[in-house]
Design a protein around this nucleic acid. Structure first.
Length: 648
RNA sequence: GCCUAUGUAGCUCAGGGGUAGAGCACUUCCUUGGUAAGGAAGAGGUCACGGGUUCAAAUCCCGUCAUCGGCUCCA
């Protein structure tokens, strides 16, 4: 007999070789039905794998992340099995579970294409195989055996993977006629999969390497119940309604024009107002934190970027230099603000008493992003960074870094971004030539970030190879409506550009010293931030951010003049006051049409006028409160101050 | 840049070798003082752009541009 410990620390005895599934059965038949995988001594196992020693166990249902993972991983195998039957000679790459479903990278062979129109046939085959209730069987094999097995089948991708594995750790899983190299864990059999849908096909480079063959990646998702699939598809539909590209157009915030160019957003009046309001909010915060606003030109001499190292790294892939009538004179559309700010630092001899020097600029930059990368406002070719560079002494780095984090927190909290992830982006240790600067400087910079995160108690994920070429970063990632992660705020510690620009200050010891530079952008870019803000709020922005997206509706001719007075009181640039002059009726035009685009409505009438208040209505929700009109502008101001004070 | 799909009215989309369709929105009139109200009439499109095949192309073929979903990239 062996002792099995459950999560609540209770203990039961079972015969040696019992499986997790049998343990679940011993507890309740219902549980045995729901369970899809198990953790044995903390390692996720198949339900059917025998347990031979004393162990702790945790049973996973579909609802658990580990359960979903096993479920979808098995689904990937099921799809592979179906593909193997439908496309003889197909080769398999990798097929993992992902956040929502699974994919498999396959190579159907020369001249064979798998298209979305083929999905129904594949889905039907999968359903057929699932219904067969094929057992999924795990087997340990030696490396030579594995190599031989997959070589015989011509599975060159698999053999490449196997050759990198350690002997003794290799397992395969088989269901029906399909055997795959796999670590597991898997479902006991294919019949757990009751609902399935293939989502999309895409090209994906083998092992993510641009220089290698592009495989066909097929994405799919499966569920243990039909209803769950329906719900999921409904959820996707709902998410699409929050898409910033859709709402941005409907709400008349921004647009694109083929004539202007790909990835070059045109901000419409309402979007501009929203963006200016955000800028104003940050400017107020920055003023408190001792920043000084600067303005620098949109172009800069090419030499500037050769000095910074940006030209060597990105020159070929950027908008190409602007030439002048002068032979050999070249300017670049500025792809970042740092070099300009470095030159401002160099403009005067600097003393340690001047530091930290915090130079802020809403700087518009232009980057020639690959055409396939462009995406609404989240990835564009012309955008405005809420940029600032802090020049400080090495002793001040930590404190300054923490203060930047405070700013980011104020913003995220004020705008109710709860689900963000912090990511520490460090060098790729295997690819050092990607980075400029000395080992010593990099270590200093990386350690500074790690230390600050520890001290602030930030649970940051460390990602190797994600650093900028001149320094490590702390990035704040937020998800969009469809769960895609976007980097918003960023803080970067940089010991390298000060070297390259030979920046100096005179210390208390009357010696020259090199300052440290902190690059930071709490929003990241105004474009991307607004995009994510739209998706998070579904276009229902906080009122204090969008005073001019309020419609004033006087409810009779009598109040027309009064409504105009209110508009003045509110000091809104783009206020809409509408009344139907012809027949003394209410501003029906606004009610019927514009309300769809403008979420808030102030209704001004007799009662409201007496009370000096107006009711605030929201499209589709009715009254959401009331507001004193005579000092509305002041109220908005107050609200901004409140947001700042609350979190500062 | 690469793979897949798409491009028809302001929006959402149907259609499809023979003079262009619907719903919503828009304009006018009637009805209605308020949380996506009803009726009547009207206007609106070089079917993304360029070339080819054809008596005839929005439709078929080729190319280009843009866009969706991915890959790679992201200073």
């Amino acid at each position: 007999m062996i002792k099995i410990t459950f999560p609540d620390n209770s203990l039961r005895e079972y015969p040696e070789g019992i499986t997790s599934l049998e343990i679940a059965e011993s507890i309740s038949p219902r549980l045995a039905q729901d369970v899809v995988a198990a953790a044995v001594n903390g390692e996720t196992w198949d339900l059917t794998r025998p347990i031979d020693t004393d162990a702790s166990i945790k049973l996973y249902k579909w609802e658990d992340e580990e359960g979903k993972h096993a479920f979808w991983h098995s689904s990937a195998h099921l799809m592979a099995e179906a593909l193997q039957e439908l496309y003889p000679g197909i080769k398999f790459g990798i097929g993992p579970a992902i956040e929502n479903g699974f994919y498999y990278d396959v190579d159907p062979g020369e001249g064979v294409a798998i298209k979305e129109s083929d999905f129904p046939a594949i889905e039907a085959k999968m359903a057929e195989l699932a219904a067969k209730k094929e057992n999924i069987v795990r087997q340990s094999i030696s490396k030579t055996e594995a190599l031989k097995m997959f070589e015989n089948r011509g599975e060159s991708y698999k053999t490449e993977l196997i050759s990198e594995l350690e002997d003794g750790t290799i397992t395969t899983y088989t269901q029906g006629s399909f055997t795959d190299l796999c670590r597991g864990p898997h479902l006991p059999n294919t019949s757990y999969i009751k609902a399935l849908k293939l989502m999309t096909v895409a090209g994906a480079y083998w092992r993510g390497d641009e220089t290698r063959r592009q495989l066909t990646r097929i994405y799919g998702i499966t569920f243990p119940k039909k209803k769950m699939l329906d719900d999921y598809l409904l959820l996707l539909e709902e998410a699409k309604k929050r898409d910033h590209r859709k709402l941005g157009k409907e709400m008349e915030l921004f647009t694109f024009s083929q004539n202007v160019g790909q990835g070059l957003p045109l901000w419409l009046p309402k979007g501009t107002q929203l963006r200016l309001q955000l800028e104003d909010f940050l400017k107020r915060i920055q003023k408190r934190f001792g920043y000084q606003q600067v303005i620098t030109p949109h172009i800069g001499n090419k030499k500037l970027y050769i000095t910074s190292g940006h030209y060597a790294k990105y020159g070929k892939d950027s908008f190409q230099p602007i030439h002048t009538p002068e032979e050999g004179e070249e300017f670049l559309l500025k792809p970042m603000n740092c070099p300009h700010h470095c030159e401002i630092f160099r403009a005067f001899p600097r003393s340690y008493k001047d530091l930290p020097l915090r130079l802020a600029e809403f700087g518009t930059v232009y980057r020639y992003e690959q055409s396939g990368e462009l995406h609404g406002l989240t990835r564009v070719r012309g955008f405005t960074q809420d940029d600032a560079h802090i020049f400080c002494t090495p002793d001040q780095v930590k404190n300054e870094f923490m203060k930047v984090m405070d700013i980011i927190h104020i913003i995220f909290k004020a705008l109710d971004f709860k689900d963000y992830e912090a990511q520490i982006s460090l060098r790729d240790p295997n690819n050092q030539e990607k980075y400029i600067g000395s080992e010593e400087n990099w270590n200093k910079a990386e350690n500074a970030i790690i230390e600050v995160c520890q001290e602030k108690g930030i649970a940051a994920k460390v990602e190797l190879g994600e650093a900028a070429f001149y320094g490590p970063k702390l990035d704040f990632m937020v998800k969009d409506a469809l769960g895609r992660r976007w980097q918003l705020g960023t803080i970067q510690v940089d010991y390298n550009l000060p070297d390259r620009f030979e920046l100096e200050y005179v210390g208390a010891d009357n010696q020259k010293h090199r300052p440290v530079m902190i690059h930071r952008a709490p929003f990241g870019s105004m474009e991307r931030f607004v995009a994510v803000l739209i998706e998070h709020t579904a276009g229902n922005f906080p009122l204090w951010l969008t005073p001019d997206q309020v419609v004033i509706m006087p409810i009779s001719e009598k109040f027309n003049e009064y409504a105009h007075h209110v508009a003045d009181e509110l000091s809104m640039q783009d206020i809409r006051v509408s009344v139907d002059d012809r027949n003394e009726k209410i501003g029906r035009k606004i009610r019927d049409n514009e309300l769809k685009k403008i979420p808030y409505l102030l209704v001004v009438g007799e009662k409201e006028a007496e009370n000096q208040e107006v009711s605030v209505r929201k499209h589709g929700e009715g009254d959401v409160g009331s507001m004193k009109i005579t000092n509305f502008a002041a109220l908005l101001n107050e609200e901004v101050e409140k947001q700042m004070n609350q979190w500062a």
